[in-house]
Structure formats: structure tokens, C-alpha cells
Design a protein around this nucleic acid. Structure first.
Lengths: 210, 210
DNA sequence: CAAATTTTTTACCAACTGGTATAATAATAA
DNA sequence: TTATTATTATACCAGTTGGTAAAAAATTTG
């Protein structure tokens, strides 16, 4: 994978993947508006025209950085949704989140929240995009809970809307806690509190290997 | 309080209290960095030198706006802490919050969160101040729970640290939900979910000191 | 009236914002 | 070697940022 046939012109001296990683970290740390093009180019060690040639605009670079984030640091979310039972979904979701939100290699909190929770009107589009991503996340979780009801590992009485919103709310609140300085253990305590009260279906003791 | 003896010079044509209200709303909506001095002066209908004479700096204006916020829209928080039992404290806290976070007259979410969850390095001091305010809030709630244990309306086994962090986390997560577009009813459902599982002291109905 | 005082107004500042035109440079293809 | 091509580097753009100096206006005091 290192032997790439080079094109005709001057060879580019930066790797797009690596640059994206740097951009992701900056946007994750300081948000969309809080990160300037100058900071980005300096951290990437490239100059602005190169950055614009490679990514088009600041907004587009942010989009790419968010995709990089979803496919990387929080890939466990999609994995969690595929766990066997609703309980295990929530368990993996919140415990892995606890680890990720305060991981020493990462900026604190969730990028989809930190990216632009609040912003000036110039970044309104970015803010809306982040909102949609969070709504989609909640919807996916709700659908997973509906499936769990069909499969019998979640009580039919459970209000899946509220339950999904509850888990997402805790996840997002834990992001704020991470920024506030909470430790991994503290976040895990919160996760366990949610799990303690989880409305498992009483009658179906699902006997999958443990 | 309307008959103020005017000083010697030209009368100022703006009311500091009203201006602060306007500033509060702008900072609340778009955060510290997302609100420019030009937006502020235009919304207040005053020019910059007047604003600087009255409030010193953008940072100081923000401080004043936050104090205005704490004493106004979220004054119910201090009131909630004085309810009779821990259960009632949490009940008032979360239900009043649900109403406030999506009240049509207010920007969505909590100002102490929206003010500057994420920001560039120039606003780092503001961000830290908001963090401290959130930590203090959590501490106050924890102390209230300790008092509740002494008064007997909260189980001695309850982990007051985790419990306080849990309620605050839900509160902050509900702020994000408000931004995402959640309704008051949806936020109240979340609040009720927390209350359902509240660890009331089994043996004591209500008796004072131990 | 005129002096004194306080505010408003206008104009301005250097630094920074996202974004780009132009030219120099380094590779390949002929 | 000489074009051709793609990327880098330099310099620059108009607009905005937080903040201010200086003058003009409106009031009270003498």
C-alpha cells in the first residue's frame, strides 16, 4: 500500500488521511467555529491553497472530519446496536462511551456535540447537521428497541420512544460530564445506574451464552 | 425606583437592566464566541463606546449576563434545593427545567451549557468559568442529598456522589435534547423516568434529625 | 448666560476571518 | 532537453473581530 503510482506533477507532501485526523482532533477540541483555518493549516503543516485544493472549504473539511470520527473513535456505536439484547446494546453503548469520552488520546466529550452545540448564525448549517445526526442516532436506538420487543428481550410495556431518548440523553449528558472533568469510573457509575433499572422482560430469561 | 436624581451630564438613553436582558438572550442563543459586539450593540440599540463604558468588556458583559440568567430564568434551581425531601428537590428541579429549557420565550437549552461548551482558545477562561458553575451546581445537589440522608428521606445506602452526578447529567442531557427539538412533554417523560427509580428511604416516611 | 460634566456619535485601529490569484517548484512524459 | 502537469509557496483580498480616541450633543450647576 506504499507503492502508489505517482501522477505527473509535483508530489504532494502531505497524506490526506493523516491531515484529516489532525483536523478531526482540532474540530473535536474547539468546535467548528472555534477552529480557524490558520490553526488547521499550521497543525497539518500545509498551506491554505493545498488545504482548499484537497478539501474544498472549511465546511467540507468539517464534514469529512465528522465522517472520520464516526468511522473511527465511535465506531463502537454501530457495533453496539448489533448486540443480542436491548440490555446488552445499552450496556456496550454506555460503557464504551464512558471509555471514549475521557480517553487520554481524545478530546473530552463527543464530537457530534462539541462540534457546534452553540454557534453564531454563520455556522447555523453545521449546527443543524449535528442536530440531525443526534436525532438519527436516537431513532436508530428506538428502532433497535422495537426489534428487541419483537424478539422478546424488552418488555412490551416499555415506552421505546422515551427509553431511546433516555439513553441518548444520558449519553449526551455524559459528554458534558466529561468536559466537566469526570473520570471514566464516574461515567461508568452513571452507565450502571441506567442498567440497574433496565426494564428487562420478566418472563423471557433469554438463555444465550454469557 | 423610577424617580432617580439624574447626574450632571448628558442623560444616558438606555436602561442597563434592559440591555443586560438583551445581552443574556443573545449569549444564551449563540454562545459567547458566537455573539459579536456588533450584534450586541445593534440589539441593544446603543453604540459600542456606551456599551464599553457600562460593562467594561465583552467578557465582563457575559459575566453580568450569566448572573442575570441565574437570578432570573433559572432561579427555580435554588428554590428546588430547599424543597422538603430529596425526591421533591429532584422533582421540582427536573420538571421546572423541562419547562424552562423549551419555554417559547427562551432560547433552547441551558445558558450555562450553551454559553461556551466548546470554544477557541481565546474563550478558554469563559469555558472554565462555565465548567466551575456546573461543578458547583453538582456539589450543591450532593450536599442536599447528604442532608436528606441525615433527615431520613434518602436511603443511607444511596451513593450521593453518583446520584447527584446522575441528576445533573440528566439535566444537562435534557439541555441537548431541547436543542435537538424535544418537546416539554418529552422532557417531562425523562424527568419522570428518573423519579420512578428514585431510592426513597423505605423505612422512614418523614422524621427529622437522627 | 457660560462652565462643567457625562453621554452619544463618528470614525478609526490592528489583528484576524475564510478564501484565492499568481508564480515558483518538482515531478513525469515526450 | 523540453513540454506538460500538479502541487507548493507567497502574497494578497474584502469583511469582521474586539476595542478606542476624539469630537459633538445634552444635561445640571453656577
Amino acid at each position: 500500500m506504499s507503492e502508489i503510482k505517482r501522477g505527473r506533477g509535483r508530489p504532494s507532501k502531505f497524506d490526506a488521511e493523516t491531515s484529516l485526523q489532525v483536523a478531526m482532533h482540532l474540530f473535536w477540541s474547539h468546535g467548528y467555529e472555534g477552529t480557524s483555518m490558520t490553526e488547521l493549516t499550521e497543525a497539518m503543516s500545509i498551506n491554505k491553497p493545498s488545504l482548499y485544493a484537497a478539501f474544498g472549504s472549511k465546511e467540507n473539511l468539517f464534514h469529512k472530519a465528522v465522517e472520520h470520527y464516526l468511522a473511527g473513535p465511535v465506531a463502537f456505536i454501530d457495533a453496539a446496536l448489533q448486540e443480542k439484547t436491548a440490555y446488552e446494546v445499552v450496556e456496550k453503548l454506555l460503557l464504551d462511551s464512558a471509555a471514549c469520552l475521557v480517553h487520554p488520546d481524545n478530546p473530552k466529550g463527543c464530537m457530534v456535540l462539541m462540534g457546534s452545540l452553540n454557534c453564531g448564525k454563520e455556522a447555523e448549517a453545521i449546527k443543524q447537521e449535528m442536530i440531525v445526526r443526534r436525532q438519527d442516532y436516537e431513532q436508530a436506538l428506538k428502532q433497535r428497541f422495537i426489534l428487541a420487543q419483537e424478539q422478546g428481550d424488552l418488555s412490551q410495556d416499555a415506552a421505546v420512544d422515551t427509553l431511546a431518548k433516555y439513553v441518548v440523553t444520558m449519553h449526551q449528558g455524559m459528554s458534558v460530564q466529561a468536559v466537566n472533568g469526570a473520570s471514566r469510573a464516574e461515567l461508568e457509575s452513571l452507565a450502571n445506574l441506567v442498567l440497574q433499572h433496565w426494564p428487562v422482560n420478566q418472563q423471557s430469561a433469554n438463555q444465550t451464552a454469557s
